[in-house]
Amino acid sequence: MNVPVPDPSADDAILNVDGISVWLAGREVLHDVRFRIMPGEFTGLIGSNGAGKTTLFRVILGLQTSSTGSVLVGGRPLTHRNPIIGYVPQKVFFDPDMPLRARDVVGLGLDGHRLGIPLDWGRRRQAVDAMLDAVDARRFADARVGNLSGGEQQRVLIAHALISRPRLLLLDEPLANLDIGAEGEVVALLARIAREQRIAVFISAHDVNPLLPVMDRLVYVAAGKTASGTTAEVIRAEVLSALYGQHVDVLRVHGRILVVAGAEGPPGVTFEETDGVAAGPGVVSL
């Protein structure tokens, strides 16, 4: 499935996914997935809901075993609790009634998995403040996190994931439920983090367009199969048609990309399954 790319040496890759397949409840959710991510690279994981993005993340996090293939993180095999990886999950619901400030959430990113009482309060506070500055969240550091806007909560969660100094940051649909302004700000922040701190950012999304200006490479998932490479290499009619198993057109309109399911092929084909967003042939908001 791989589009030929200039082969970066496997040893340098921060993430090397090599031919993994995952079975869940008797169904193959991911099939022979392979791609690499280099340090400081900004990579998109593009696919519709249910295409297998979260499952792929769970494999990389060591929470889901794969039936075949291997995953190397920072050149080493997978372990549970990998300090190299920072993770921002898809849905974190902060109840507005919960007595919890933004800074408390970030602090838990530092040592939330440890038992016992933290001893160096001073240094902890400094680290949290520095992190809040880095994601431009200092002004609402002491606000109740449940009362913050979606974009602000996303910044807090990113700070939560970054404070343990990971080298690979996984974000599961961080742009879902954000308005366009907040979307742009979060993407710009992530691009800056990738560039300045050389942290590889691997971000899943169902729409490729917000990521276009900053994305180095992308991994496209459909029906459990993947294609990876640069945008120009992957978002092409031949590649996506092969992936979906039906004819697909790629249109470029005003710098935005639209993927359109072809009219040919048997009616009501796999499109409904592969892409929850589009019911039947029509324009997919990719």
Partner: peptide, 24 residues
């Protein structure tokens, strides 16, 4: 039941291996 269905699913999947699932 789940053991049986996974076995069955694997069998059909391996039977269809020549089908061009990975087309690139």
């Amino acid at each position: 039941r789940s053991r049986r269905s996974e076995r069955a699913a694997r069998r059909t999947a391996s039977g269809c291996a020549e089908h061009p699932g990975d087309a690139a």
